[in-house]
Computed example of a mutant assay.
Amino acid sequence: MKLEGKAWKFGDDISTDHIAPGRLFHLRSNLEELAKHVLEDADAEFPKKVQKGDFVVAGRNFGLGSSREHAPRIIKIAGVSAVLAKSFARIFFRNAINVGLPVLICDTDKIDVGDTLEVDLEKGVVLNKSKNLTLTFSPLPKAMLNILNDGGLSSHIKKHGDFKLE
């Protein structure tokens, strides 16, 4: 499973409030509309300029804060193919996999805004095409890849039945 797109760079401690601004709480039942504001409190230009297939690239502790499942969901709705970060808040990581959004733990220091990336989820490789640089990450377990390939946990269970992860 290979993904390709442009990098959007964010720093450390990007919270679920940065991802899904709390002032827009009333849009929780309209995720398509809420996705038009994804990460705007961290970068006002991001929701206007992000393209299908692009990557969110961040530092440490991405997704900290409340366990709102709509945070990773609106990142996915906005067209982001994966989030790469040095570390993730545990609940955000799990919610992201459950909604079918790949989240990859890797060193993001050598990725800059606008770099073109190619990510191989199975091999655990990030090719920074802009810098001709290869980065690695621990490949996701087969069970997680199966969930992602099926579009998230709900779709996976509908397809295979309860708790059949392989």
Rank of each mutant, 00 (worst) to 15 (best):
H156L: 14
I157R: 14
D41A: 00
M144H: 05
K52T: 12
V57P: 06
P141E: 10
V80Y: 11
I75D: 02
N98Y: 13
S155Q: 15
S29P: 02
V99L: 10
M144N: 06
R28G: 06
L127M: 13
S15I: 07
E45C: 02
V38G: 05
F62T: 03
K49P: 00
P72C: 01
I75A: 07
I111Q: 04
K36R: 14
V125N: 12
E45S: 11
Q51K: 15
I75W: 05
T136M: 05
P141Y: 01
K48W: 03
V99N: 09
G152Y: 08
C106H: 02
P102F: 14
R60E: 09
A89Q: 11
P72W: 07
D115Q: 08
N149L: 07
V57C: 09
I147A: 05
L24W: 08
R73L: 04
E118C: 11
K159I: 09
E33P: 03
L127R: 15
R94S: 09
M1Q: 09
I157L: 15
K142C: 00
G100Y: 11
E69R: 02
W8C: 11
L148A: 12
P21L: 13
K48Y: 04
D41Q: 07
E122P: 00
L135P: 09
V57G: 06
W8Q: 13
V119S: 10
G65N: 08
K86N: 12
R73D: 00
D120N: 15
D13W: 00
G65S: 11
V99G: 07
L145S: 05
G161H: 10
L27I: 06
F137R: 02
A20I: 02
